[in-house]
Design a protein around this nucleic acid. Sequence first.
DNA 1: GTTGACTTGTCAAATATTGACAAATATAAG
DNA 2: CTTATATTTGTCAATATTTGACAAGTCAAC
Lengths: 99, 99
Amino acid sequence: MTKLGERIRQLREENNFLQKHIAAQLDVDTPMLSKIERGERRAKKEQVLVLASILNVPQADLLTLWLADQVYEIVKDEDVALKAIQVAEDEVKFKQKKK
Amino acid sequence: MTKLGERIRQLREENNFLQKHIAAQLDVDTPMLSKIERGERRAKKEQVLVLASILNVPQADLLTLWLADQVYEIVKDEDVALKAIQVAEDEVKFKQKKK
DNA sequence: GTTGACTTGTCAAATATTGACAAATATAAG
DNA sequence: CTTATATTTGTCAATATTTGACAAGTCAAC
């Protein structure tokens, strides 16, 4: 289960959309959307943006979940997961300052 | 430049080892080690463990940098980088609690 | 038992990553 | 300047991973 997939499904159901409907706009078949919702496949960034517009939420919201899923996937089985995330976070903060 | 690559080079120079020497123990050629040090190629996890033992530092230290590099690579160009990292961090913390 | 929504499994095609090599550059020594 | 050693750069085929598409499956409502 991915954060993004869960959120997409939640929003889709709130809006009473069928997978068929969303999938068509993403230009994939329903099995693919099903897999994205269940976290079996990763959406493309471009698809995340389209999803945000279909589901009427800010792009940043879904992009955040999309990235968070990828980060989590990398560290999830590691003892040093938290430490690694914090090192990366520090670097992001450092680079942002410089900008 | 990656955190891991910089650290490897630093440790290698502190110990006066040549790339040739380290590369042999990693079972790669020196161009490959050069690229790992400069962050042009990613080391395998197994190689990171060997590096820790060659360079006499705790495995966790290098693994942390190795993971942090990967996390940073994912989020580095994104506006929501920080938020995404924090979401992932929350999930790591949550899962750790459950264990 | 037919329909509609969704899921599962499989596969080849597209894409990305890897390791190896030759060649280039850099540095230092004689 | 020429040689020797260390490191870097560029390229390429081999390998691995990801992707999209399809057929077939489950499940629930009717």
